[in-house]
Amino acid sequence: MLSVLQSEWYKLRKSKITFILFVGPFVGLLIGLLFNLTIEGEINQWYILVLSMNLTYALLFLPLITGVLASTICRYEHQAGGWKQLLAMPVARGKIFLAKYVLLMLLVFVIQLLYLVSIYGVGMIKGYTDPFPIEIIWRGIIGGWVATFPLVALQLWMSILFKSFAAPLTVNVIFTLPAILAINSERFGPFYPWAQPFSMMYVGGNTDDLFFIPWEQLITVVGGSFVLFFLGGYFYFQRKAV
């Protein structure tokens, strides 16, 4: 398993992956610096910053970039019959799927960490004096990461299914855009998987549980859609004719 993972990483290193990874913090930095919302009062400056940055980052950027990563990780295989070569090796197909998935989740985690750095960077540049709410921000970073589990699974599925980058992106967009409306709805927001990265990074949210959303919601919506998409992709890959 580890060797498959290493092989995947080796192939990916040559795919301009660092460029994609650094777009995340760049977006964060840009939005953070351009956004000039000042609310008078007792609220920690960091909260306001993170809230405003998340609105773009967690709602649109994170779901969309996971799709780009998933397409990139399948790029070599779609070129010049790479699937044939990969699947003819003495490795179970399930392991290859899992390796690709695990690597994607690690990369998303890296993006989240870089985003954390960019939050801190913006605050430093702006000269914030309030204490850095590291614990709360951590919960958002990890939470946002967990919320991408089902999204990444679906995008990996779509990226294996389609040869071009544009097709998985289309699917991604169709599901991601309604999240803009969904987060405004108390009724539908909690049930919409693509709205979960935002909800789980929403530092003003529910603080009774470990994350910013209730456990039930995490398990049913995030967990449920993860199982659905992961198994869907997994079994599709098992049967994929190459």
Binding site: K16, V27, I31, T56, F61, I65, V68, R75, A166, L169
Partner: peptide, 20 residues
């Protein structure tokens, strides 16, 4: 292809943040 797509996603983010 990941280059135009990433650039495109970046553009989408910019468009979404047009007000700032």
């Amino acid at each position: 292809q990941s280059i135009p797509i990433t650039a495109g996603v970046l553009g989408v983010i910019f468009t979404y943040s047009a007000h700032i």
